[in-house]
């Protein structure tokens, strides 16, 4: 069994695509369709990497990312953001939340803007997981 990668995205097509990339590179995919479900799976399955979408209904990736990075037990899990919004926008929203009273959170280990090429995504995952 390879290392576990949690794929969080509300779009079924994206989930299929990313899990295929993950599988094809010898890792084991786990999927979640929203932040709530994803947090449960993070705690239950202890993934080695999380590929996270930012814009999702219910719980957004922005909030989930903060939740992960402010939880001592979970903050070491590397997160790759795969999103339709630009990296700059994501970082600005995080900075705004920090200013609003939360604690500062580190930048994600990698940030890919949709649509990502399979090679780019695979390369990023491989680099992070070593």
């Amino acid at each position: 069994m390879g290392k576990k990668v949690l794929v969080v995205d509300d779009d079924a097509d994206v989930r299929t695509f990313v899990t295929t990339v993950v599988e094809a590179n010898g890792y084991t995919p786990i999927v979640a369709t929203n932040g709530e479900e994803a947090m449960a799976k993070v705690r239950g399955d202890k993934p080695d990497l999380i590929v996270l979408d930012v814009l999702m209904p219910r719980e957004s990736g922005i909030r989930m990312y903060r939740e992960l990075k402010t939880d001592d037990a979970l903050k070491t899990i590397p997160v790759v953001i795969l999103s339709g919004i630009a990296k700059r926008t994501f970082l600005r929203s995080q900075a705004a939340l920090t200013e609003f009273g939360g604690q500062a959170v580190p930048e994600p280990v990698a940030y890919l803007e949709k649509p990502a090429e399979p090679e780019e995504l695979a390369g990023t995952i491989k680099k992070v997981l070593g």
Binding site: D13, V14, T16, F17, T20, V21, K114, P115, P118
Partner: peptide, 9 residues
């Protein structure tokens, strides 16, 4: 993006 993903799969 969906089509490309599908083709990749």
């Amino acid at each position: 993006y969906g089509l490309k993903g599908g083709v990749y799969v």
